[in-house]
Simulated assay, not measured.
Amino acid sequence: MSVWAVLEEADRPRWTYTPGVGVGPLVFGMSRHEAVAAMDGFVGDLAPAPRAIADTWLTRFRVPDRLPYRTAVLAFHDGTDGLFCVIVDAACGPQVTLDGLRLVGRLPSGWEAELFDYALPRGIQPVYAPTGDPGADELGIIMQVQRAGDHVLTRPALGVVRERANTLWDSLPYDPDLHG
């Protein structure tokens, strides 16, 4: 299987995202050990997060029998806030929905239009991160993109605004590999 392969929708687990609460089996605020226990069917590799402040941990979740070398979900924890950010891989991560709006593996332009159609009637003002990625702090979403062969697809960063942060962007762990 090619490194650029993208799983079909039918082959992806289905998760629901609830802003401020969690995504799939992952609940914001849970410990890194609770997250590993909650991710049935995934193997979690836990390590200190690269280029992060002290006591920030990254767990890379993968499905052992399908694309075993590919990370499907990244989960970031810190000692104060517990789980604060989940990033779902565009090519092999679960399909995540917010009120029926598909978040993972989409063409960015189509997703951006749907974000505005979803957010504006609810009084939510979409914003753009410094990288140009659209999102909404009230929804806890910054929609990053990920290369998949000759295309780019949506890779959502889902999280909560942490203490001492002004926006969701300020809350995301800094790693150039995660920001574009």
Score class of each variant (00 low, 15 high):
residue 127 V to Y: 14
residue 46 L to G: 00
residue 172 L to G: 04
residue 3 V to W: 07
residue 126 P to F: 11
residue 122 R to W: 10
residue 177 D to Y: 08
residue 40 D to A: 13
residue 69 Y to F: 14
residue 33 H to S: 11
residue 134 P to G: 12
residue 39 M to H: 04
residue 142 I to V: 14
residue 77 H to T: 14
residue 75 A to F: 06
residue 169 W to C: 01
residue 18 T to R: 14
residue 99 D to H: 13
residue 124 I to H: 15
residue 143 M to V: 03
residue 96 V to I: 00
residue 82 G to R: 08
residue 15 W to K: 08
residue 115 L to P: 03
residue 155 R to H: 00
residue 59 T to N: 05
residue 65 D to A: 14
residue 42 F to R: 00
residue 123 G to P: 11
residue 64 P to C: 11
residue 163 E to L: 13
residue 75 A to Q: 05
residue 83 L to F: 05
residue 63 V to T: 14
residue 112 E to H: 06
residue 45 D to N: 06
residue 85 C to E: 15
residue 118 Y to M: 07
residue 139 L to A: 10
residue 49 A to R: 10
residue 126 P to S: 14
residue 172 L to P: 03
residue 170 D to Y: 13
residue 43 V to W: 09
residue 15 W to Y: 08
residue 44 G to S: 09
residue 57 W to S: 07
residue 141 I to V: 15
residue 119 A to M: 10
residue 96 V to D: 02
residue 27 V to S: 12
residue 68 P to A: 11
residue 24 G to F: 05
residue 19 P to T: 01
residue 73 V to S: 06
residue 15 W to E: 03
residue 109 S to V: 12
residue 152 V to Q: 09
residue 148 A to I: 02
residue 106 R to D: 01
residue 56 T to K: 02
residue 124 I to Q: 14
residue 35 A to E: 05
residue 91 A to Y: 01
residue 41 G to P: 12
residue 123 G to M: 13
residue 162 R to S: 05
residue 98 L to W: 01
residue 52 A to I: 09
residue 135 G to E: 07
residue 131 T to H: 09
residue 137 D to I: 15
residue 28 F to D: 11
residue 111 W to A: 09
residue 127 V to A: 15
residue 46 L to V: 14
residue 180 G to T: 03
residue 145 V to D: 00
residue 26 L to E: 07
residue 126 P to V: 11
residue 127 V to M: 15
residue 45 D to I: 10
residue 133 D to S: 11
residue 22 G to I: 04
residue 147 R to N: 03
residue 60 R to D: 10
residue 117 D to S: 12
residue 35 A to M: 07
residue 35 A to D: 04
residue 156 P to L: 02
residue 2 S to N: 08
residue 98 L to R: 07
residue 146 Q to H: 06
residue 72 A to D: 15
residue 78 D to I: 04
residue 62 R to N: 03
residue 171 S to F: 08
residue 128 Y to F: 15
residue 15 W to Q: 02
residue 51 R to N: 15
residue 170 D to P: 06
residue 91 A to T: 13
residue 82 G to K: 10
residue 166 N to R: 15
residue 12 R to F: 04
residue 48 P to Q: 04
residue 66 R to I: 13
residue 136 A to H: 06
residue 43 V to Q: 11
residue 127 V to H: 14
residue 150 D to E: 12
residue 89 D to G: 00
residue 119 A to W: 06
residue 103 L to M: 12
residue 117 D to Q: 13
residue 43 V to G: 06
residue 154 T to D: 00
residue 1 M to S: 10
residue 107 L to K: 12
residue 88 V to Y: 07
residue 130 P to R: 14
residue 90 A to M: 04
residue 124 I to K: 15
